[in-house]
């Protein structure tokens, strides 16, 4: 029983790491722009697709290796960074001074565009991600087992999150990002290149989403052009759970959501798996709308 519980926890944490990576993109963009970037789930999908084609063209299908995984990750990140930059430039930047709902609609538009373009370019039928690592259990006690794939997923996720934390807290760009998130107008007056910082934030989020796409290919190899819709929405829930706009919040929210989902489908029923994220969302919003780590802002009259 305890072993079973622990096993679910391990699976949940590995799955939650992927949510966390996607959630970070939502939360960072929300932080600087107050925009819910609904196209983010599709960036993750493109990340997985690029990973698939990259891995095949590198000839990794029959020869799994750690170096191959790194190369695939890099390729996928590069493509997604470019994609995010184009999206921001074309669909969001022209609407910077428009009513707040306008960029939300273009975000939905971009999301639909990528889904449909994806079905045309990649084909609507699911593809199977080549195994980039030879799956074996590196840790086994009784019924509890941890595979090297799970370790790789979690390790990569942690590494990337640590890198992100370093960028945000220790670099010039990170400081600029925090400044824009705090008050874009004041930041602009202090000489922060706001537009470039926003672009950089989108790119950073996309790089993490791309990694999530490749990592998901390792654990759930079946990928298709609509795969980004539900995980995208759930990662967004994870971001709200931790407090939208709050970077450590998104990490914790993602891990928490992964664990809870795994527990629900393991111990209750898998049909409620998709509902639990939203029930949790409502509970959090009603009880503490700013999320676990969010701070309330007083309203000036």
């Amino acid at each position: 029983m305890a072993e079973d519980l622990l096993q679910q926890l391990v699976n949940g944490v590995a799955w939650g790491g992927i949510y966390a990576l996607i959630a970070l993109g939502y939360t960072m963009v929300y932080g600087v722009l107050k925009l819910i970037n609904f196209a983010h789930g599709e960036v993750y999908m493109v990340g997985a697709m690029t990973g698939y084609y990259a891995a095949r063209s590198f000839g990794l299908a029959g020869a799994p290796s750690l170096l191959g995984l790194v190369a695939t990750l890099a390729a996928s990140m590069a493509v997604c960074a470019l994609l995010a930059a184009i999206i921001e430039r074309v669909a969001y930047r022209p609407l910077r001074s428009a009513p707040r709902l306008a960029p939300l609609i273009t975000a939905i538009g971009v999301s639909l565009l990528l889904q449909n373009l994806g079905q045309l370019v990649f084909g609507a039928d699911p593809k199977f991600f080549p195994p980039l690592l030879e799956s074996r259990n590196v840790f086994e006690v009784g019924k509890l087992s941890v595979s090297n794939v799970q370790l790789a997923v979690l390790g990569t996720a942690i590494l990337l999150m640590a890198a992100l934390q370093w960028i945000v807290m220790r670099t010039r760009f990170g400081r600029a990002m925090r400044a824009v998130s705090f008050d874009a107008q004041a930041a602009a007056l202090m000489g922060v290149p706001v537009d470039r910082v926003i672009l950089g934030t989108f790119v950073l989020g996309a790089v993490l989403a791309a990694a999530a796409g490749v990592l998901v290919g390792l654990t759930n190899p079946k990928i298709d052009p609509l795969m980004g819709v539900l995980p995208g929405l759930k990662a967004f829930v994870a971001a709200v759970l931790g407090g939208i706009g709050n970077i450590p919040g998104a990490m914790v929210g993602g891990l928490l959501l992964g664990v809870i989902e795994t527990f629900v489908s393991g111990y209750l029923s898998s049909t409620y798996r998709d509902a639990i994220a939203f029930v949790l969302l409502i509970a959090i919003l009603l009880y503490k709308p700013t999320g676990l780590f969010g701070t309330t802002q007083t309203e000036k009259v």
Partner: peptide, 12 residues
């Protein structure tokens, strides 16, 4: 976000 969540919960 809350209305989105409610709608999904209703649907499921």
């Amino acid at each position: 976000i809350a209305t989105l969540g409610f709608a999904e919960v209703i649907r499921i």
